[in-house]
Design a protein around this nucleic acid. Structure first.
Lengths: 271, 271
DNA sequence: TTTAGCGTCCCGTATAATGGGACAAAGTAT
DNA sequence: ATACTTTGTCCCATTATACGGGACGCTAAA
């Protein structure tokens, strides 16, 4: 009888349906924040419809999130909602104090950008995604600046693939449970065997490359960063316009990216 | 610095501001996220004590926030909590879609960094703070890379002061209601009259400067960015090591920063 | 002008959060 | 090694709180 939890008909919940400790309003509120961030600026009714939730419930939560400073609305007669700066401020402070990663990586990244002239990206694994947490811009002209916080499936970036390649088999299998799509045409599924084969090569060589990635055509070479226990948890990559960084040039950067990633891993292990 | 005993929360919002839609658990959960971000890694009991909340309540909320993917704990025998990548991912997507600011600013910022060799910062006003939302690194060597999400009092940065200088009198008065501290020694209060005088000069000249700011000694020159209604809502600055950017060099950059800020303002008004 | 849709709010009901307290295990002092 | 402190975890009766159907006035489009 302890946790009967007769979720009868509401068991929808796109991503999380895990009532440990529960707290439904909290879950709703957080989902709201995420969806508003995705669809902003958006009106209350529209939001309620898309989430399949009662208008009154959504409205009440929006009001609450506004007074807590996480959401805000423009001053139109039909208010549209957006997220405030709060998540970024929270996330920024989090990065700042997080492990030693950022600190350990910055000097290495700076050196790397001066050696190569290209932009250096540092990503942190978040579940099945890799999130950009720091970017240092190269001297060469750059056609696109990815905002910090950009999140991609692990299979979509060179650094993500490097992480995948060094994941324990059990976790890789669980990752491959869900079909993965190609970056370019988001309807093509990548066959698991094809991905496994590529990952094997990456594991041997110690780096991954990725060519002509949308939205701007950019190419990159990446390597994984490991914690003290030898677990890959972050990735480093050199990224540039794909007309300058062709496969040939990317491969020439292999020694540098692997050395840099290794140096960061070592720097992290010294705490 | 006096924050040891106040326990509750000194930021803003939260607390018992009578949330219009109520939702106590939501407020608690959000406060928890913010405080964990600030104090991470932190244990549950410690957290409960600092927030003056029952241990059981905090524990339950922590569990809920973990299942929703906003907090995570390291795997020690005494778990310590930290925030996940979720807030950054949310914030990043928010920035991406926010107004046209980032898009309008990027090309101007890129041009500026090539002209000057220094790093360019773009900040967005958030209440009485200005939050760094984008940074483009200069070619010159940089001694510190501020993480996106860094948040400062408006009076602490050149871009923040530029915004203050163009605020409507009513809002400036409200801002000055609370005493402001000097950046260097956080105990010295800046007399309101002194600040007003500096702001008057900034309003006349159209830019502000700021010299030798901790933590790394860096100096900057900044200007405000206005929306279509003429309201200052963001700031742009050129920042570099203070031994290279002395007052003389900063002043020489005045035409460039004001032109760049104006160009962004105009770009924003064209929607 | 009409009308479909929106934002806003009320309020009775039933659900879900609350937090004191108990407990074992981890860490600290003796 | 032993006693003591503090931590993470969980239970459960109580009651405070979120829920959401529905009503209302207003906005913008037809």
């Amino acid at each position: 009888m302890s946790e009967a939890q007769s979720s009868a008909d509401d068991g929808r919940a796109s991503d999380d349906a895990d009532p440990r400790g529960a707290s439904r309003p909290v879950g709703l509120a957080l989902r709201l924040i995420e969806r508003v961030a995705e669809w902003q600026p958006i009106g209350a009714s529209d939001l309620a419809r898309r989430l399949a939730l009662p208008k009154a419930t959504v409205h009440r939560l929006l009001l609450a999130l506004e007074t807590f400073g996480w959401l805000e609305r423009d001053g139109g007669s039909r208010p549209l909602w957006s997220v405030s700066m709060r998540p970024i401020a929270v996330g920024g402070r989090a990065i700042e104090r997080k492990s030693g990663l950022r600190m350990a990586a910055l000097s290495v990244m700076d050196a790397l950008r001066h050696q190569t002239g290209e932009s250096i990206h540092l990503g942190l694994v978040d579940g099945e995604n890799i999130v950009l947490i720091e970017r240092i811009d190269g001297v060469n002209s750059v056609n696109i600046f990815l905002p910090v916080g950009t999140s991609w499936d692990l299979s979509w970036s060179s650094s993500g693939k490097s992480v995948l390649a060094h994941l324990p088999e059990a976790e890789l299998a669980s990752y491959l449970q869900t079909p993965r799509y190609r970056r370019k045409s988001e309807t093509d599924i990548i066959p698991a065997t094809e991905l496994r084969q590529e990952l094997a090569g990456i594991r041997d060589r110690g780096f991954a490359i990725s060519v002509g990635v949308p939205p701007a055509a950019s190419s990159s070479i990446g390597a994984a960063i490991f914690d003290k226990r030898g677990r890959p948890f972050a990735g480093l990559s050199i990224t540039g316009a794909s007309d300058r960084l062709r496969e040939e040039q990317l491969l020439a950067l292999a020694p540098q990216i692997t050395a840099a990633a290794r140096r960061i891993s070592i720097g992290m292990s010294m705490d």
